[in-house]
């Protein structure tokens, strides 16, 4: 059986093509999902890719969160479907309430575009089992509003429950609280992160192939050999 992983395209999405390529690299079938179509076409997991959905009007992800496809994704996530939000996708999952917190303008206002070391803090989520706990991975980060914010009780709960999945190594690139680069929901099946694993799947086109592990991990979670 080949896993079918959906990749959503909103108006203004940029990284759906790379995300679909990463899905295919991992051995799964990439299924294009359209923002206005509530039908998930029977996919086993969903990637919400990066970009500037709806021009980032109002707030990043605030309008995409209400797209017909997201209503179905929220519903499917509630039933246990693995969902990965990357960059703008992370912002959308936070706006949708699938993940806690919010992403705000980078502390120093500059758009950050660089290869970023991350530490894997939790290797038990649906998107991180292929990494060793504490492993450091090199993944591109490219965002202007990547500062992860949550109130103190939420941060304490995330830390206490091990729901910080990825943390920035070295200098904090964007002012994220507790150097948080990615978090998981309570079930560990929904994960969001600002850096772009789909850009790090092949040494020819990225700084490493460290990002591929997230996609392999999802296939493991789905019970599909890769």
């Amino acid at each position: 059986m080949t896993a079918r992983i959906g990749v959503i395209t909103f108006p203004g999405t940029l990284d759906d093509v790379d995300a679909a390529r990463a899905v295919r690299y991992s051995g799964a079938e990439a299924v294009s999902l359209w923002h206005a179509d509530a039908d998930l076409h029977g996919v086993d997991a969903v990637v919400v890719p990066g970009g500037f959905s709806y021009g980032d009007y109002l707030r990043c992800g605030a309008i995409a969160r209400f797209a017909p496809v997201m209503t179905s994704v929220i519903d499917a996530a509630g039933k246990g479907m693995p969902v990965l939000g990357i960059c703008n996708g992370f912002q959308i999952l936070c706006e949708a309430g699938l993940l806690p917190g919010a992403l705000v303008r980078n502390e120093k206002l500059h758009f950050v575009c660089r290869d970023q070391w991350l530490r894997v803090e939790n290797n038990t989520t649906s998107w991180s089992t292929r990494y060793d706990s504490g492993a450091e991975v090199l993944i591109p980060l490219k965002s202007g509003e990547g500062g992860y914010m949550a109130d103190e009780p939420t941060l304490e709960r995330l830390e206490g429950d091990g729901r910080v999945v990825f943390r920035y190594v070295g200098e904090n690139p964007n002012g994220s609280r507790s150097d948080i680069a990615g978090v998981a929901d309570e079930s560990g099946r929904v994960v969001g992160l600002m850096p772009h694993p789909e850009h790090a799947i092949d040494a020819l086109t990225g700084p490493s192939d460290d990002g591929l592990g997230m996609f392999y991990s999802a296939l493991d979670a789905l019970g599909v050999a890769a």
Partner: peptide, 13 residues
């Protein structure tokens, strides 16, 4: 408005 405890880098700029 951004909450008081949320850093407002645009306002600071």
């Amino acid at each position: 408005m951004p909450k008081p405890e949320i850093l407002d880098p645009q306002g600071q700029a």
